[in-house]
């Protein structure tokens, strides 16, 4: 199943750790909040994406099968 990175914006504190762990998919905006590549995460990156999710200090980064509507 295709997984995408999703941010719980109410929880994200702009620590920016995710951008260090997944630089090819996440950069930071001018206020320090993540700008996420919205396309499905390639299989080879899934493991590190999971790591970024579990390491996010605010538990704001989620790997989801589809976007909430």
């Amino acid at each position: 199943m295709e997984q995408r990175i999703d941010i719980d914006w109410t929880a994200c504190e702009g620590h920016g750790l995710c951008a260090e762990l997944l630089p090819e998919r996440i950069t930071l905006d001018e206020w320090g909040y993540p700008l996420v590549e919205g396309t499905p995460v390639p299989t080879g990156t899934i493991k590190r994406a999971r790591r970024a999710a579990s390491d996010c200090p605010a538990l704001a980064l989620k790997l989801r099968v589809r976007q909430p509507t």
């Binding site: 914006w9 994200c12 504190e13 905006d29 206020w31 320090g32 909040y33």
Partner: peptide, 8 residues
């Protein structure tokens, strides 16, 4: 509550 909204 959300960084981009709060700042932008």
């Amino acid at each position: 509550q959300c960084g981009p909204c709060l700042n932008g």
